[in-house]
């Protein structure tokens, strides 16, 4: 029994600037998925990440601005993951400083984790763009 020879399939090459969804997704949560017309996924990611960031601010969480030690540096890196949300919040002087209540400590962690989740979402958009994920 003979089998049909495998036809060489033309690999789908991504067109344009492949890092655009990654950068857009970092700057604004869900934007990378919106660019790729993944409306549902993008909306859910935006709601989750912006919601988490906003709740963190509402709990008087701290936005890290300076790097006094290594742990602060890691928290700044996490906060920077939120992209424009972080920069706009800094400009508007949102967030509590210093952290004085337990709830504010939770808020600080919400803000940091929102940034880290946004990085994961932006990388996911990049993987969709390059075809590594469907």
């Amino acid at each position: 029994m003979s089998t049909a020879p495998n036809k060489p399939t033309a690999a789908k090459q991504p067109q344009g600037f492949v890092y655009l969804p990654l950068i857009a997704g970092w700057l604004f949560p869900g934007a990378g998925h919106f660019l790729l017309r993944k409306w549902g996924r993008g909306a859910l990611l935006a709601i989750s990440i912006i919601g988490m960031f906003a709740l963190g601010l509402a709990m008087q969480g701290k936005l890290y601005t300076s790097t006094q030690d290594i742990l602060d540096m890691l928290c700044v890196a996490g906060d920077l993951g939120s992209g424009l949300l972080y920069f706009v919040s800094r400009m508007l002087s949102l967030g509590g400083d210093p952290v004085q209540t337990t709830v504010a400590e939770y808020g600080t962690k919400f803000i940091v984790v929102a940034g880290l989740l946004n990085v994961i979402a932006a990388v996911d958009a990049h993987n969709l763009r390059t075809g590594r994920k469907t």
Binding site: S48, L55, F110
Partner: peptide, 28 residues
């Protein structure tokens, strides 16, 4: 200021993080 209970904070955190994990870690 928003002051959730400790359990409410856990549930909110889990809800948002799970949503992002679910979308980014699986294909369909």
């Amino acid at each position: 200021m928003f002051r959730p209970s400790h359990f409410a904070a856990v549930v909110l955190f889990a809800l948002f993080a799970s949503t992002v994990f679910g979308i980014t870690m699986r294909d369909n």
